[in-house]
Every structure is written in structure tokens, then in C-alpha cells.
Design a protein around this nucleic acid. Structure first.
Length: 136
DNA sequence: TTTCTAACA
DNA sequence: TGTTAGTA
């Protein structure tokens, strides 16, 4: 599946990514500093983002808007990245995406629950809406 | 013109 | 995070 190399191909500079994600260059660079993304670099030190990087930034943006801080996002992202779970290659790419989303949601939920228990409640009202999806 | 790093009224 | 400075 060379679809992966296409998604991971470093293509666009930060200017394009800014428009694609509605994030400021400052934010994008800041998220990189915190290890949320790792865009490639040109010989001139300029960042080159791939489709995956942009996707990741969009997820980060969504989480930020839900009120999470960098630390929280790091944890959420860590639950979906280092999870090479063996998945059947029979499903269509679309069906696979749904499965992944569902799985990510479970992980996110679990993470958020632990998060809320450990920390003091208040700003972490994440999943409130997402919870309904498990009460079908 | 665009991007980069570092730093702060 | 915004924003500015001085580069490459």
C-alpha cells in the first residue's frame, strides 16, 4: 500500500498549512515544539508538511477547541499513534476509517475518564457530546 | 515574498 | 498566543 508514502510525503510549506488548518504559523510551530507533529525540513530549514501532518493538525485544532491543553492532546494522540493494532485489510478504506474513528473514540473516552479522575474537574468537559455515541 | 528562530509591552 | 526583529 503505497498510499502511506503519499500521505506522508512532505509537500507544503507552512503558509499553505495555515490556510488549510486555520491555524497561525505561531501555533503550528508551537505544536511542533511540543512534539505534536514532526514535519520534514528542507535544506534551508523550512518546514514541509504532509497530508498526515495536516490531518494531525486538524485533530489538534479540534481538541484545542474542546478545551484541552498541549499535555492533554499529547496523551490523546499517544493513544492513537503507537497503536499498530492488527486490522483486517478486507474493509473498504471508508469503512476502515469509521472503524478507526470508533476505536479512537473509545481510547479518547478511556483517556478522558482517567484524566478527569486524576485531575480536578472543570475545564475538561471534552466528550460530553461524544458520549452519546455509545448510548445507541 | 515567505519562512525561521528567539524573545517580550 | 500575538507579534516583532533580523535572517536566509
Amino acid at each position: 500500500m503505497s498510499d502511506d508514502i503519499r500521505r506522508n510525503m512532505a509537500l507544503f510549506p507552512i503558509g499553505i498549512v495555515m490556510k488549510l488548518t486555520d491555524l497561525t504559523a505561531r501555533q503550528i510551530r508551537y505544536y511542533e515544539q511540543n512534539g505534536l507533529i514532526q514535519p520534514a525540513r528542507t535544506e534551508g530549514k523550512q518546514r514541509l508538511f504532509s497530508f498526515n501532518d495536516v490531518d494531525r493538525l486538524l485533530e489538534i485544532k479540534a481538541l484545542i477547541e474542546k478545551g484541552l491543553n498541549i499535555a492533554g492532546i499529547k496523551q490523546v494522540l499517544q493513544l492513537q499513534q503507537p497503536a499498530p493494532e492488527k486490522t483486517e485489510i478486507t474493509a473498504t478504506s471508508e469503512a476502515k476509517r469509521k472503524e478507526m474513528s470508533e476505536k479512537e473514540l473509545h481510547q479518547l473516552l478511556k483517556q478522558q475518564i482517567l484524566f478527569n479522575n486524576a485531575a480536578r474537574h472543570g475545564e475538561n468537559a471534552l466528550i460530553r457530546g461524544e458520549l452519546s455515541r455509545f448510548f445507541h
